[in-house]
Amino acid sequence: MLTILFDGIAYGMLLFVLASGLAVTLGLMNFINLAHGAFAMAGGYAAVVLVNKLGWPFFAALPLAFVIPALAGLLLERTLYRHVYTRPHLDQVLFTIGLVFMSVAATDWVMGSQQVFVQLPRALEGRFEVGGVGIGRYRLMIIVLCGLLTIALQFALARTRFGSRLRAAVDDPRTAQGLGIPVNAVFSVTFAVGSGLAGLGGALGVEVLGLDPHFPLKFMIYFLIVVAVGGTSSITGPFLAAIVLGIGDVAGKYYMPKLGAFAIYTIMIVVLILRPQGLFSRAPGR
């Protein structure tokens, strides 16, 4: 029971780190990026290649799993994404689905369609017991790492100069520009960091979620639920939504093997009926 709770929290925190970039671009910038999972996949494959093929230690590969998708995100933002920011949502949807399809096919071509795994350090394998609760070492690491990232993210958005500049740029780009805030640069950096976090989540998730070229499609619904159910007014909402989703998914699949896969849809529908604006939104109907 507590073990499931523990696994669920680990899963949820991983989902949050994966989706946090989307929570910012979609939630704050109101840009619908369905290709977010592609950056997570890039991070995952970066880790797999570095560790399995080049023999890097797992922990040494993680920073690169952040940097590579972040650079890819920066490049794409500079060249393509920025043209689509002000377009209708339909255009954003079409554009990012196009990117997803391209990334899926390209990854399939380069890496093959089979599921891949990453070689973990010995120290992270196995479980130990604390008071009858089985604690997976790897999942414990996820919780610690993702917890730290969450706190850092919350701090960066709420307390730093960059965070306030971002919020100003989102609220009113023109005025922000007038105040001397480099709006385009702020968006670029935000997008790059969001992509990097997704990549890091992707690398951490190889062991837990599995990784194959269809990753961006498979997890699209999870990302959407985290952001939509969490509400778009803060980062706390998506965080709690991710935890609820993680616990719900793990518990559902454990207790009801046949019906467990429906847990996430049930959560989605119930929240939608009770709170159409998301769990934690402040002002209804913005």
Binding site: L26, H89, I221, I225, P276
Partner: peptide, 21 residues
């Protein structure tokens, strides 16, 4: 209910759910 975002989520979710069923 709600915005384009929730519509995307619900429409995608309903299709996935039926597939799972």
């Amino acid at each position: 209910r709600g915005s384009d975002l929730t519509r995307l989520m619900v429409t995608l979710g309903v299709a996935l759910m039926l597939r799972e069923i």
